[in-house]
Design a protein around this nucleic acid. Sequence first.
DNA 1: GAATTAATTGAACGTTCGTTTTATTATTGT
DNA 2: ACAATAATAAAACGAACGTTCAATTAATTC
Lengths: 202, 202
Amino acid sequence: MARTTGSDGEKTEAAIREAALELIARLGFEAMSMRQLAGQVGVQPAALYRYFPTKEELLYALMCEHMENLIASWGEVRPATGSEKERPAGRLAAFVENHIRFHLSRRNATHVSNLELRSLSEERLRHILGMRSQYEGELRRILADGQRDGVFRIDDVALTAMAIIQMITGVIVWFRPELRLSEDEVAANYHTMTMRLVGAET
Amino acid sequence: MARTTGSDGEKTEAAIREAALELIARLGFEAMSMRQLAGQVGVQPAALYRYFPTKEELLYALMCEHMENLIASWGEVRPATGSEKERPAGRLAAFVENHIRFHLSRRNATHVSNLELRSLSEERLRHILGMRSQYEGELRRILADGQRDGVFRIDDVALTAMAIIQMITGVIVWFRPELRLSEDEVAANYHTMTMRLVGAET
DNA sequence: GAATTAATTGAACGTTCGTTTTATTATTGT
DNA sequence: ACAATAATAAAACGAACGTTCAATTAATTC
């Protein structure tokens, strides 16, 4: 056999990406074999190499897409200049809410992007970390502005930013959709904790 | 050649454990080969199997030791009943400080225990998660007591416990000894943030 | 409808993996 | 000194790995 009826490059690539996210999130990148991945997609191993030249490039592509989506997501909800919500407290609230919703809706991709950085070559790692730093810079800016305006009580902006990022990203470690708390409740709860953490008046 | 001069089982096992922690933390468990590990220890691959029957049992042993150490460490610093520090705020302070110092002094083991759970069999995973849950239960208890006494303002004890754990464990992700902040400063900073997070009066 | 291109199969390549087996030497106990 | 045991080396096992290559068929273009 060779080309199969109804086969379509775009659909196949999307199927590979989705299956890879699921398998890497569950088994880990090194533990997932290209044969397993092909099996999940319903294709022969060799077919994968039409879309991604190496296993590592596949991982890199997944991470790039995730980070680009994350940055774009924040770009869309970031409060407009001049709006009431432009002040630090409003921006921080928007940042936390977007972060939690984004990550809860992409658990697999988040696990991959957070846990498999070790499998990237030095150059690709730098690129991903650069995007991550850009995203975290948005939070640092918010914290610094709030500190300057006297609405936040923060000892160390960089340290606080890392603490908040760790805290709000950690939601995907324990949150299960079938649990007692809804996504809305979780987001509200993290928002409250974040505001207290930075000493904002409620 | 066979047995080498000065060879000693206890020393060899300790060397294997230490080298394994370093390699797994850097490369990941699946990416580390037994040959690499043997090379790092300065021994032939077959010698490893005198101490650990399989690669997975080695990982399991490392994780068990780490979790047991963590629980024992808290057991030693936990404020005695009847002391001034027995009240929730004092206990929480002790918990956070111990947690941060413990993890900063065992970065490799912490990375292994947090990132490689996927490589454990179901039964062993259950055991490790049981110990982790026991440890986290100590924090939940502190939070619940503080909530009951009205000294903490907490919406959801379980969620808050997870948020705090994620936040204070996350320190090992970014902290580097050569950075501008000392271990003491970092611990103090996290303590302040935690107290604000739970709405404790300062 | 023929030529071209896109998508995939099936088989294979060389390498590396975790692990086992057997032999050999150092150390310990008597 | 000699037996018993502990610690290791050396070599090998089959299996699985990422990847490549040639062949084959479906879809598209002209």
